[in-house]
Simulated scan of single mutants.
Amino acid sequence: MKITEIVLPSVGEPESLEVRLRERPQPGPGQALVRVEASGVSFAEQQMRRGKYYDMPAFPFVPGYDLVGVVEELGAPVGGGKPGPVVGQRVAALTKTGGWADYVLLDAADLVPVPDGVDAAEAETLVTNGATAWRMLFRTARVRAGDTVVVHGANGGVGSVLVQLARARGVRVIGTASARNQEAVAALGALPVDYRDDVPARVRELAPQGVAAVFDHVGGKGIHDSWRMLARGGTLVSYGSASTRDESGNGTLTVLRLVARLALWNVLPNGRSAYFFNLWAGKARNPQKYRADLAEDLTEVFGLLRDGTIQARIDSVYPLRRAAAAMRHAESGTVVGKVVLSPSADDDSR
């Protein structure tokens, strides 16, 4: 039996993506074959096609940072520990690459159960975005009820989840976005600020003593403004460099310069702290703890989705074979929510 996968052969435009067929793999010991129901189109893939993602694999490879699917086959169990997934169970996984396929072979230990009653595409919007938002809020910045925070790009994939999770915990949120997205940001429960205005001045009006945390995916020169918004004891969490997406040059160097700047700020005697958030930090050093923490965090996020506390925001669903069109749309600047790829979507899907 053949499987379908989308291959990024080299640096190029979205239209350079290739649809390829290969033999369906068989799970070995400790592995699971997952039939993919949904995979996302994220900023990571946009950087990868430009050759700028800071730890991307060598070309050619199959993109796909995360997925939701159903366990189709299991290899022989290995070791002890907690029971793993079962055939027929809906699961989620962070993959970094490989998710743009209709079947994916994964380590069974990396799979996180998706609760009954949660739609696959809706769950997919919260795998990377939900895990990132939850960890930055509650593991890195450790925000608490009554705090005020700034979320840049509050209408974006991670930003909108940050706002919802923070509001659910009683945190006041100031959210930056474009003028056309101010109403949507307000509907999420944040105080909207146009990112083209004097954001630091507006934040000072809303929080004269500064804010407890700033979540910044933009990077670039604006990172200095984010640092200055903090109150004493506040935390800056940087998790990207979207402002440099279309700039030429080495993406790794861009990230390293950003990390170096944050590290320098951390040694200043002003009571504030700065971090570069990496969703994969700790996995190589202690994979068992990493998996346990990820399962705990995603279980919390999926539970909030199931009970209606937070909402999944799906911009559009494209068939897997139309990955090029999906990526082109994801980069259009018009997206509200997550662009999702689905192997089962028909060709009339958008």
Rank of each mutant, 00 (worst) to 15 (best):
P77R: 02
V86R: 11
Y103E: 15
D102Y: 10
G30V: 06
G40H: 13
K82T: 15
G69A: 07
A38H: 03
T95P: 14
G69N: 04
A108T: 10
L106Y: 07
G28R: 05
V41Q: 06
A108H: 05
Y53W: 13
R50E: 15
Q47K: 07
A92L: 04
G79I: 11
A44D: 10
P29M: 03
D55E: 15
V78R: 11
G40K: 00
K96T: 13
K82M: 12
K52P: 11
V62F: 04
K96G: 10
R35T: 10
A32H: 04
V78S: 14
V68H: 06
G88A: 08
D110K: 05
V91S: 01
A32D: 03
P63C: 03
Y65T: 09
L67I: 04
K96Y: 14
G28H: 03
K52D: 12
G84T: 02
M56D: 14
P29E: 13
Q89K: 01
P83D: 07
Q46H: 14
V86G: 15
G75Y: 11
F59Q: 01
D110A: 05
Y65S: 06
A76G: 15
G81I: 06
F59K: 00
M56H: 12
Y103D: 07
P83Y: 01
V78M: 11
G84C: 00
S42W: 08
L105K: 00
D55K: 01
K82H: 15
G40I: 06
G51Y: 09
P57S: 08
V62T: 15
F43N: 12
A58K: 03
G28Y: 08
V34Y: 09
A58N: 15
G88H: 08
R49E: 13
A44Q: 10
G75L: 09
G79F: 13
Q89H: 03
R90E: 07
G75D: 13
S42M: 07
G79T: 12
L33D: 10
G80W: 10
A92W: 03
V62N: 07
D55P: 04
G30A: 07
V104G: 12
Q46E: 13
Q89C: 01
K52C: 07
G79L: 05
G81R: 05
Y103V: 01
V70F: 10
G64D: 12
A38S: 08
V68P: 08
G40D: 13
V78A: 13
G84Q: 00
V34F: 09
V86Y: 14
V34Q: 08
G30S: 12
E72K: 01
K82W: 14
M56P: 14
F61Y: 14
A93S: 08
T97H: 13
A44V: 10
V87S: 02
G51Q: 00
F59S: 00
Q89D: 06
G51V: 05
Y54H: 07
F61M: 00
M48E: 11
S42A: 12
M48P: 12
V87C: 03
M48W: 12
D66K: 02
F61Q: 01
G88Q: 00
L67H: 03
